[in-house]
């Protein structure tokens, strides 16, 4: 099943549930539009929250840059001895 079909199925199920609640008059008429608005707002909040949390916890590795510099020096040394052209001119 294509992924878009799965997502549409999910949305249709949610809509059906909502219509069912309306039909069964469990939900008062004046609140009709509340569930979809809540749904969209909470989806937006989820997205922003995930981006925010992800940004705050974004793993960084400054020490790796230093280690890489050491590796580069070591590699250049080795390769120069074996006549591989590792001049800095690019």
């Amino acid at each position: 099943m294509k992924h878009i079909v799965k997502i549409i199925t999910l949305l249709v199920t949610i809509s059906a549930l909502w219509i069912g609640l309306l039909q069964a008059a469990i939900l008062p008429r004046s609140y009709t539009w509340l569930p979809p608005i809540y749904f969209i707002v909470s989806l937006g909040c989820y997205g922003l929250l995930m981006v925010g949390v992800g940004l705050m916890q974004f793993p960084t590795c400054p020490q790796e840059a230093l280690l890489l510099q050491q590796d580069i020096v070591e590699a250049k040394e080795f390769l120069k001895q074996r006549n591989v052209d590792v001049g800095d001119s690019e």
Binding site: M50, F58, E64
Partner: peptide
């Protein structure tokens, strides 16, 4: 982890991932 990314690049990356 990553190194050498600006805040903008991190934001784009996180947004794209979410």
């Amino acid at each position: 982890g990553v190194h050498g990314w600006t805040l903008m690049r991190k934001l784009t990356s996180r947004g794209a991932n979410v």
